[in-house]
Each structure stands twice: as C-alpha cells, then as structure tokens.
Write a protein that binds this DNA or RNA. Structure first.
Lengths: 201, 201
DNA sequence: GTCTATAATTAGATAGAC
DNA sequence: GTCTATCTAATTATAGAC
C-alpha cells in the first residue's frame, strides 16, 4: 500500500499538472515558472520538460484538467435535475457552479488571466472548452429562464460567472477587506443562495 | 504648443505610470517586465529605475492612479445624486461603476490579479484603497438598499463587482466566445442597465 | 522515468556618460 | 532628466548520466 502500489510515472505527471494548475492560477502564465511548479510537485524542472514538450503544453494540460472537472460536475448535477421544472433546475445549476467555484478558485483565476489577451492560449481555451459550456448555458441553463431577449445572453453569462466566482477567486483579499472567510461551508451556501435567487427570482 | 510646452520629466513619468498600469493589468505583476513597460512608454528601462526605486514602487504608483480615477468618478457622480431617493441613487451608482469598468478594464484586472495572494501588495491595496471604497459601498451604496441583513454585505459587494466588471475585463474572450463586443457604447449601457436592475429591482 | 548540468535568453537593479 | 552598458540572478529548453 506504499507508493509502489501506483505507477510512479502517472503519479509524478499528475502531481505536475496539479501543481501547474495552482501556479498558473496564482501567478498567471508568465508569472509561474516551471522550476516553481516542479518544486510544488516535489520534483525537478527536468522532469517537466520530459513529460511536456513546452510550457504551453503544460498549461493546456492544466486547463484541460480544471475544465474537465467543471464539465463532469455540472453535467452530473444537471442529470439529477432532469425532471425538475426549469426554474428550479436553473437555480440549482447556479448553486452548483458557485460551490464548484468555491472548491476550485483556480477556474476563475485561470479564465480571468487568459481572457484578457488575444493570443493562442485564449483562442484555444475558447474554442476547445468555453464554447461547449456557453452553448450548454444558453440552451438549458439560466439563459433560458431569466430573460426573453436572446441578445442579453452574453451579459447574463458574464454576470453569472462574475457574481458566482469573484469572491472565492480573491478570497485572501475578501478576508482582509470584509472579515468574512468566503471558504467556510456556511459562506459558500450563503453565496450560492444569494446568486441563485438574484438570477432566478 | 509642441512637446516643450509641458515639463518633459512629468510627461515621461506619467507615461511610464500609464504604461505600467496597462502592463501590470494585462500580464500580472510578475509577468510584466520593466523593459516592456519602458518600451510601451516610449523610453528605456533605466529611466524607470530613476523615477521609481523599485518595481514594487512603480506598481503602487499604477494602483494609486487607477484607484484615484475610480474614487473621483464615483464621488462626483454620487454628489450629483445627493437629492435622489436611495434606490435611484444606488441604481445610478452601479451604472456609473459599470461604465467605469468598461472604460478602465485595468481596474478589475489589477484587483483580480492581486487579490489572489496574501502578500505585501495585497495588504497595501486593501488597507490603502479598498477599505475606504468598501465603507462607502456599505454606507451609501447598494449595501443599504438591496438587503437588510448586514452579514450579506460582503456577498453583495463581490457579486456587484464581479457582475459589473468581468465582461469588460475579459473583452477579447467575450468577443470570440459570444460574438458580442462588450466595449461598444450600446453594450456598455445594456450591461449597466442589466446589473443595476438586477441588484436594485 | 528521473535526475543533474548547462546553454541561451531575459529579468530587476546599478553605474556612469551626457 | 535621460540614456547606454553591465552585473547578478532567474527564466525555458536541451543534453546526457543513471
């Protein structure tokens, strides 16, 4: 039951991706160094360049991971809500997104960092991961429930994303500024309810 | 009326701070290099270290600038709304904040970047600039109007900030993802109305 | 697969010419 | 006040030992 029970290579690679996700989210793409990532993963920089041909590829693996987690979580929840009426389903989908944002502040941090610039990473992120999620939002999510006008969909999407996630993405600031620790279970549920009721009254 | 009409030193310094604000907002503190900032400002790296004893000091000057602009803009608007009833005043204050976020996406980018970490810059930012703004929000802004319970204030603050600003902070992503250019005058007003009505029905 | 050593580039800060 | 030149340290990527 020691380390040897698992393939070491997979473990090391996993830990590198996990460390990269955290580092990229915290310091931004440029700000996070591969040495720092290696150290976080408990290994050395050489092993990163063995598993990933470039820093860009490592970043993609990190983005794949967090977006995969989000997709799995949301689809699973939506699945259990198939039979609910639209407004209840929309509300609970929003609550689940808030909970995910609290458990994984890396998501918003990564998105906010990459969405600012027009470069290859942004384009890849939008085309590969964001478009499917946006379609899902438009088709079955809040987009349908809150408003009639199709032209408001982009506004509703970014309002929802920002309202749901910011407080967790800047949790250290929130603690110092307001005294509230947004990462407690109670604060997460309060925020989920606040945002869900706001967007789907 | 040529360049010589203004003190050159002040001009150069100004342009450096302006370039630094943009660069720090786009690439993050670590990601933005002083050489890159100098180039943006149309000068050289040596002049930056002449005007600012360290990169950290340059960052503070950039933060002072954007927070100063926000304060001036909001106080001026609130001043013209003194006689309005609370809900109208709150709604218009939110609209004004949305407009400011559209005109100055650097604000949200800088805040989102710095609020993630517990370091000297975050602490300085909170203590120097964010606390006064948060107090103002609590005392005369949306905080008073939308909800009764004082404990919801932090949630309302971050919901407002995120809902109002994210779409402009990630404008390049928004354009590619949704087809909407959030920087057009029409989109800004639509967003302002959407957020204001949502938070103050 | 995992590591150390190192090459080539770039970082922030300093020194000094003008 | 503005610039070029340079120091030291840190960056990504590569080469090769084991």
């Amino acid at each position: 039951m020691a380390d040897a029970a698992q393939p070491v290579a997979a473990t090391r690679r996993e830990r590198i991706v996990e460390a990269a996700l955290e580092a990229f989210a915290e310091k931004g793409y440029r700000g996070a160094s591969t040495r720092e990532i290696a150290e976080r993963a408990g290994t050395n920089q050489g092993l990163i360049t063995y598993h990933f041909p470039s820093k860009e590829e490592l970043w993609r693996a990190a983005a794949d991971r967090i977006m995969g987690r989000l997709g799995t979580r949301l689809e699973r929840r939506l699945d259990t809500l198939r039979t609910e009426e639209p407004r209840v389903r929309a509300r609970e989908a929003i609550r689940e997104f808030v909970r995910f944002s609290a458990a994984h502040p890396e998501l918003f941090r990564l998105m906010a960092d990459e969405g600012k610039n027009t470069d290859d990473r942004m384009r890849w992120l939008v085309d590969t991961h964001l478009k499917p999620r946006y379609e899902r939002f438009a088709q079955s999510g809040v987009g349908r429930v809150t408003e009639i006008d199709e032209s408001l969909l982009p506004h509703a999407y970014y309002v929802m994303a920002g309202a749901a996630s910011l407080i967790f993405a800047v949790a250290p600031e929130c603690r110092r500024l307001t005294g509230l620790d947004p990462e407690t279970a109670e604060a997460v549920e309060t925020h989920a309810e606040f945002v869900a009721r706001l967007l789907v009254p």
